[in-house]
Design a protein around this nucleic acid. Sequence first.
DNA 1: AATTGAAACAACCGCCTTCGG
DNA 2: GCCGAAGGCGGTTGTTTCAAT
Length: 324
Amino acid sequence: MGRAPCCDKANVKKGPWSPEEDSKLKSYIEQKGTGGNWIALPQKIGLKRCGKSCRLRWLNYLRPNIKHGGFSEEEDDIICSLYISIGSRWSIIAAQLPGRTDNDIKNYWNTRLKKKLLGKQRKEQHAQAQAQAQAQARRVSNMKQEMKRETNHNLMISSCMSTQAPNYWTAAEYSVHHPIQVSNSSIMNYDHLNNETSFTNLLHPTTIVDMNMNMNMNMTNPLSMVSDTNNGGSNCDHPPQIFEGFEIFSSDLSELVCVNQQQMEAFYGIDQSNGGSTITTSTESTSWGDMNSLVYSPNLVSDYEGSIPQDVATFEDSRYFKMQ
DNA sequence: AATTGAAACAACCGCCTTCGG
DNA sequence: GCCGAAGGCGGTTGTTTCAAT
């Protein structure tokens, strides 16, 4: 037995609102208000609409002082940094942007900002990867030359000492005597960590130790370290699945959002015991600033680092954030 | 000019929370 | 304390618009 519908679906009009419907709803609410009952409202004014639909229409479009489109850079920054901090809590984000609705911001994020942010991230990552690839190529080239020299040298020796077997380096021997110096972990392969290994986990000190121990094992695809989008092994309760289709960055960002969410909640002392999340101690967790800098412009984030909690805390009640 | 695919936007759906009886 | 109605919210889908071919 399902829940009773909020209205008679058969007698309710769906789809885009006509100007007549808009003006009916607007003028009624402006004159008499909603009467505290959205469900009854459409009958009162003779609209064949669901009460919820009327509410949405009013809140998102008919309400005075609503801005549409034309998001400024500053608003972009606010949305991005808040999203990083608290995730997809659009109503809270909207509360920080006068004249903007949660629906508007949500759509704007899904269609533009997400891509913009990821594009930025991807560019930086690409540049970094290229630099590393070049450095690696140089090292390999040097190795080859050295190998060649030594081989020639050994051949000379062996030809001089014809009674002895040729003294070549085996691959294993060569690797022992010529360890490849890897300066940056991002070009390593972390296949030895299972698929569920999250970016967060990778940033965890103990994981880094583990990574270091395994560093000499493999060197392949730099991107293989990125974990599964669906957050299999994360301790995050429900990370936003916003980056579907962005295989490379998806889990990095969603994990970061998740971690920031936890930090945010920890900041407010929200009890996560029933959510399965574990707040780490300050020594365990990666620093707040570090995490932010991985995702977004540090100066942007630092601008909001201090202001977000207070701003958000003043928003309506303590629905999301337990007041201190 | 027609077609197609992507992007943008509007609206709906269903779940969760709140509130009043 | 329980239950149901209503509100609120985020995710998703449907429609329209626009650009590329």
